[in-house]
Design a binder for these strands. Structure first.
Lengths: 230, 230
DNA sequence: CATTTTTTGTGTGAAGTTTACACAAAAATA
DNA sequence: TATTTTTGTGTAAACTTCACACAAAAAATG
C-alpha cells in the first residue's frame, strides 16, 4: 500500500521465487541445488530461491538469484508455474513463483559469497525438502514439452558442438534414444545448424564435425515450432 | 506465520488470481468480463478475479471465482502465468496468478449475486484497466500454443457437434483458415472423433453429420501431442 | 607396425503424410 | 422449378519419415 488512496486489508502470504537450474555435462542433465544454511531443514538440499522484494518483479528476483549462484547474467529463464498449496511451507503461507533456467555449465563460476552448491544428475538427486521435488518434476515436464516443438540447446551447449553432443542432449532430456542418421538428417533439414567445416580438437576417437546454431533459424523455429519425432 | 516456530519479516505483496474465461459462439471466440463495482476504475471492464484467501490454493481461488461468475463447476482451467510487475496495480503491490478457462457458453448461467458480466468477442473488446489486456493477450497466446499440439474443443463445444463447428473453433482461435477436406481428413485420421451417424437437427442448409470427442483418444493425444498444421 | 575398437559420415527405398484441388448431392429459399 | 449454400468424398504429386549397412578416421593395444 505504498501508493494510491485505496486500502485493502486482506491477509498476505509471503511470496518467493525458486529456480530450477538445468545444465548438461555432455551425457546427463543436471540440476543445481544449494544446501540450506539455516533452520528449518538446515543442511538439506533445496532449489535456489528467495523471497520477493517489494521493488522487484518475480523475473528480476529469479535472475538475481541465478546470478548469485552461478555468476551468470543474460541467462535464458522461463516462468513455468506458481506453487500455492497452503501447507507447502512449514514456515507459514508462502507461495512460490517457479522458473527454470538453462545454463552452460562451463561458464558457471560459483559465487564467492554463497552457501554450498552442487550439481546433481536427474537420476541421482538427494532428498529435497519442502515441495521442491514437485517443483523440479514439473520443470522437467515443461522442458520436455518444450523440446518437442521448439529448439532447445542454444543455452545448454557451448558455442561449437558436435552432432553427437546435440543428440545426447535431446536423449538426456527426453530419456529416449534416436537413430543417429535420422536425427542428424532431421536437424539439418529444418536448418537449425550451421556447419562450421571444422572438426573437434581433442578427441578420443574419430574426430567429428562441429556445428553451431543458426541464430535466425533458431529464432524462427522457436516462434513457429517444429515437430521432433522419430 | 500461522504455524511453525520460524518467523520471517519480509514485506508481503497482496496476491490475487485472475481468470480469462473463453467461450465459443459457433463463429468467434469470446471472453467473459465483469464490470468493476468500486473504485479504482469503477464501472470499467476487467477480468474476473479476486484476492487469495489464506486457506485456499490459487487454483481453488480461481475455481471459486469461475463458479461465482458462470455457475460452472468442474471446468477446465489452466494456470498460465503470474504477473508481478511492481507497478501493475495502482492499489499497491499486487501479484496476480492468472488462469484461463474453457467453458461451454450454453451451460453458463450468470450467478445471481454477481456484478454485471458480459461476453465480448476478441475483436470487440472494451478497454481493460490494470494490466488486464496483457493478461488476456498472454492467455490467448498460450491457448494458441496449446491448440497446435493438443486437442482443444472438448470444453468449448457441446457434446455433439459438426465437423464444421470444430473447424470454425480452430479457425477462430488461430485466426487462420483451413481447407475443409484436409482438416476433416486430419482430424479423423488421428482418431479424435467418434462418428455418431446422426445428422444435425435444425439446419439452415444441408444437414451435417454429428461427431463427439472420443474420450480415450482425446486423452491420449493430450498426453502425446499431435501436430496440427496445414 | 598391424590389428582392434570406437565413432563418424553418408544414402536409399518403402511407407506414410501432407497438400492442392473439383464435383455431385442435400436441403432450404425464392 | 431453379437457385443458393453447404456437405461428403477421392486422387495424384510432393514431401517426410523411417529402418537399415557399410566404409573410413583416429586412437589404443599388443
Amino acid at each position: 500500500m505504498q501508493k494510491g488512496t485505496y486500502t485493502y486489508d486482506y491477509p498476505r502470504p509471503m511470496v518467493a521465487t525458486d529456480c530450477v537450474i538445468f545444465g548438461f555435462d555432455g551425457t546427463k542433465m543436471q540440476v543445481l541445488l544449494v544446501k540450506r544454511g539455516e533452520e528449518p531443514y538446515k543442511d538439506s538440499w533445496v532449489l535456489p530461491g528467495g523471497f520477493l522484494r517489494m521493488e522487484e518483479s518475480a523475473e528480476e528476483s529469479a535472475r538475481m538469484m541465478l546470478r548469485e549462484k552461478t555468476g551468470l547474467r543474460e541467462t535464458y529463464i522461463e516462468q513455468f508455474h506458481t506453487f500455492s498449496a497452503p501447507e507447502r511451507d512449514v514456515r507459514g503461507r508462502v507461495i512460490s513463483i517457479a522458473y527454470y533456467a538453462l545454463v552452460r555449465k562451463q561458464e558457471v563460476r560459483q559465487g564467492a559469497n554463497v552457501s554450498e552448491v552442487g550439481w546433481f544428475p536427474l537420476d541421482g538427486l538427494p532428498e529435497l525438502v519442502f515441495d521442491h521435488k514437485d517443483i523440479l518434476d514439473m520443470a522437467l515436464a515443461k522442458l520436455r514439452e518444450r523440446i518437442m516443438f521448439q529448439p532447445v540447446g542454444f543455452d545448454l551447449l557451448p558455442e561449437k558442438f558436435t552432432m553427437r553432443a546435440l543428440q545426447s542432449l535431446y536423449e538426456a532430456i527426453l530419456g529416449v534414444e534416436f537413430d543417429r542418421r535420422n536425427f542428424s538428417k532431421k536437424i539439418l533439414h529444418v536448418g537449425l545448424l550451421t556447419d562450421l567445416n571444422e572438426t573437434s580438437r581433442p578427441t578420443p576417437k574419430r574426430m567429428a564435425k562441429l556445428y553451431k546454431f543458426n541464430a535466425e533459424s533458431y529464432g524462427r523455429l522457436k516462434e513457429k515450432g517444429f515437430r521432433l519425432e522419430f
